[in-house]
């Protein structure tokens, strides 16, 4: 039980980071981006690429399995992920935006997801890999609860990052502009907010968070080209559960989804675990489609 809660919160923290970006895209750009989870895959693999390409050592910090090289690699990976997101926006989404119904955008993102996943597969192969092959032993914190030092780091890091994003949206002019567009695009336009700039920053924030989430996922579990594909449903569930466009909601939604998924294993066979986010989603859509928290008008 305790173990399931701890594991659930950890996975939930990673889902939360991914869901922040997704909820922003759904709120501001107003379409469900199926390619968002693939940004996590891309980011995770870019960090791996940086590590192997430059032969960076994996000198670990204290009890952790990684050290500053991975942090550097993560920064580079975040940059590369943002670049990819902007490139896709430029080549695919922008030409379609406004010209066709927004479902076509959803469809295009569905195709883009397949593309990104398979480009990663082509570049890195399908094998499961790790940033560090060193196996970390878990520590028994109390009876029936074992955690790895990496997990604690990942959990705290994810929460700090989510907090930073929240402050950014609340306190900076740019964040306010993003929220304004999310609330009411026409009004925001009237008030002189440049939509192009807001769109760009949405991709920058979403892309870099996705990259970090991907790396953190890779640290605690492993790297595979399918990680994004498997996380897509939990991300959507978290974003909708938390109220589309609501960043705090996405974080809480992510933690909840992680917890429910993890606890479900106590009741139903673990083989069905991947379907749990879908069931939660269905329940939310039937019972409280607006999510637990107030979403933005874009998320109506």
């Amino acid at each position: 039980m305790l173990q399931a809660i701890a594991d659930g919160l950890l996975t939930g923290a990673i889902i939360a980071l991914g869901a922040i970006g997704l909820t922003l895209t759904m709120g501001i750009l107003r379409f469900a981006n199926f390619a968002h989870a693939e940004m996590m895959t891309w980011g995770a693999y870019m960090a791996l690429g940086v590590l192997t390409l430059f032969g960076l050592p994996t000198a670990p910090f204290g009890p952790l399995t990684f050290g500053w090289p991975l942090l550097v690699a993560t920064l580079v990976a975040a940059g590369l992920t943002v670049a990819l997101a902007l490139l896709i926006d430029r080549l695919v989404f922008r030409p379609l935006r406004g010209r066709v119904g927004h479902l076509t955008l959803v469809f295009a993102s569905f195709g883009v997801a397949l593309l990104v996943r398979n480009v990663v597969l082509l570049m890195f192969g399908g094998r499961a890999t790790y940033y560090s092959n060193e196996l970390q032993m878990s520590v028994e914190v109390m009876d029936g609860l074992r955690v790895m030092p990496d997990q604690i780091f990942v959990f705290c890091f994810a929460l700090v990052l989510a907090g930073a994003v929240y402050l950014f949206l609340q306190k900076t002019p740019l964040g306010l502009a993003m929220r304004a567009v999310s609330e009411n695009p026409s009004l925001a336009g009237v008030c002189g907010i440049r939509l192009g700039k807001v769109v760009m920053w949405t991709w920058i924030v979403g892309g870099s968070l996705a990259a970090v989430a991907g790396v953190l996922y890779g640290v605690t579990v492993q790297l595979r080209p399918e990680i994004g594909f498997h996380l897509l449903l939990p991300l959507f569930a978290a974003a909708i559960l938390g109220g589309v466009g609501n960043v705090v909601g996405a974080v809480i939604g992510g933690l909840l989804i992680g917890l429910i998924e993890s606890l479900s294993v106590l009741v139903i066979p673990s083989g069905y675990k991947l379907a749990i986010p879908f069931l939660v989603l269905l329940v939310v859509l039937f019972v409280r489609p607006s999510g637990l928290f107030r979403g933005t008008s874009g998320g109506r």
């Binding site: 594991d7 996922y217 579990v221 595979r224 990680i227 294993v265 673990s270 083989g271």
Partner: peptide
Amino acid sequence: VPYNQEQASYRA
């Protein structure tokens, strides 16, 4: 305990 193929984690 059965597990499904190609998952990133089998912690559960």
